[in-house]
Amino acid sequence: MCDHTNKNIYLPYLATVEEVIDETPDVRTLKLVFQDEKVRDSFVFRAGQFGEYSAFGAGESTFCIASSPTRKGHIECCFRSVGRVTEELRRLEVGDTMGVRGPYGNSFPIEDFYGKNLVFVAGGIALPPLRTLIWNCLDLRDKFGDITIVYGARTESDLVYKRELQEWQERGDVRLVKTVDPGGNSPDWDGKVGFVPTVLEEAAPSAENSIALVCGPPIMIKFTLPVFERLGFTDEQVYTTLENRMKCGLGKCGRCNVGNVYVCKDGPVFTAKQVKAMPMEF
């Protein structure tokens, strides 16, 4: 939980944009450094938590904290510019100021994953919520079994974190399976071609002593969960994050609920078992 020294729980921390990375034509990653010295040291978060990012004059928007908790001193956020706030964020250059509120929500129970094999499955722009966990695990590599990453997008240019995909591919201790939807590949594409669920079925990671982590648009999750069942994963072994419209991020404004579960307070990280218990309203 974040310790709010000041009393106004809606007041954001100010952060300066240190680096701007264009992942795809409309997806951008911003590297942020908190302006206030005290906040820079005291800001502690866990993989899977999210923040409310302010573009002053436009409002706030909700994305996960994309950088790994093991990397101190800065945080990263990755967003696609679709709405008013994200388009305003896109206009920020290096040195500009924006606001960050958080960290909010629960996180991946990384301690329970020690000693287990990990299977990361992500689609399109849903890699960032898993990327924070991937880097977290890679920084503590010896604590885990083998790590498989299945990541796909509509076309090659839609793949985010291309540099890191390269890095993961070259590492010996990670099995990366890149894919693009049929027809999205260019001639010299070295990854697979096919939808993420089918590619996952081919990769067929073993369910024995392993944890699956899924993140993607609702349609992808709907087709990926059955694949995991066929591969022998039980519902407790599969984790996912839900993306609902949020405003306050701390359980007050009443809009992110799926059934009686507040995605911002009781989530965003849930096991497949919890997701199946929720009514179909997300």
Binding site: G57, G59, E60, K247, C248, K252, C253, G254
Partner: peptide
């Protein structure tokens, strides 16, 4: 008690 948070100004 549901509410919205919005920025208004120039």
């Amino acid at each position: 008690h549901c509410f919205d948070i919005v920025d208004e100004g120039t």
